[in-house]
Amino acid sequence: MAQALNDLFAAWGLSGGFVNVIWALVKALLVLGFILLNALLLIWAERKVAGHIQQRPGPNRLGPFGLFQTFADALKLLFKEDVIPAAADRVLFVLAPIVTFASGVLVYVVIPWTPDIVVRDLNIGLIYVAAASSFMVISFLMAGWSSNNKWSLLGAMRSAAQLVSYEVPLALAVVSTAILAGSLSLYDIVQAQAEWGVWFIVLQPVGWLVFLIATLVELNRGPFDMPESESELVAGFNTEYSGMRWAIFFLTEYASLTAAGALNAILFWGGWLGPSFLPPAAWMLIKVYGFVFFAMWIRWTFPRIRVDHLMGMGWKVLIPAGVVQLLATSAIVLIWG
């Protein structure tokens, strides 16, 4: 299909640079479409999972199994009044959700869903993911500070503290897989698992545990959702947001959750690899949504942990574990690699 489109562009007499721009736009639209649909379905799934865990049906009125509930909710949010608090810093208040969403979308550039379906495989893939997601913290700080509200500010500060703290163990765990694969490209990391004939989860169970916990913290999801803990901070950094701007924060949360599932699958669970009775894309999706379901399950079964406990766990348990993991991996690769 890609070739047919290229031929079509050539027949229209379009030059190379222009075709590249069109391709970039097409890919961006595909990613955006995926993120929007995915979020609508995941919000429904989250409410269903929460319902089952809390022994209630969850949404069940609109459409089969209540499937259209989130579509109705999205419409409602679109038509809501656009409120900006009088005391807010207007420019930053408006910019914050945009930066959040951009940060969430940027990660999708390097994620290979199958060997062929990837926007652009970069040889600095892992560093790129870390750099793109680092805008998330800034956008939360912008949202919290510009709201001019103490709950928002407290939520923003908590999010900055926990995101910065947990970036370190996350990086340590992720770098170990790059050392095993000998490359930072996500595509190469999956290929390395194919060549070794073993998924990295088998070689690095400790690294995976560190990755899992740090990822859940980075996603701001329960039991680590201190930045918006509704029982003490109203809604944390997004307290003053409503309507579509608020929806964009949630859209990004589900986009990031799915991207984290994809990273988890690629780095530790062999990406699109699997027995050949299913196509590679199916294996990838099973692993991604398996992680998403797992994250929901964790969120609705564990109570929120205390801020200082969270910091203690990050600095005193996960970082030492990550450092030992990294040293051991490097030593083993140096000696036997």
């Binding site: 600095i124 790129y128 680092s134 800034i138 910065v164 970036e167």
Partner: peptide, 25 residues
């Protein structure tokens, strides 16, 4: 490209954030 990504990661993701964190405190 590597230096660019490292620049964003370290300067935007860590140093600016810590700076803002300090300002908020």
């Amino acid at each position: 490209d590597f230096v660019a990504a490292a620049q964003v990661l370290v300067y935007v993701g860590a140093i600016t954030v810590l700076l803002i964190f300090g300002i908020m405190l």
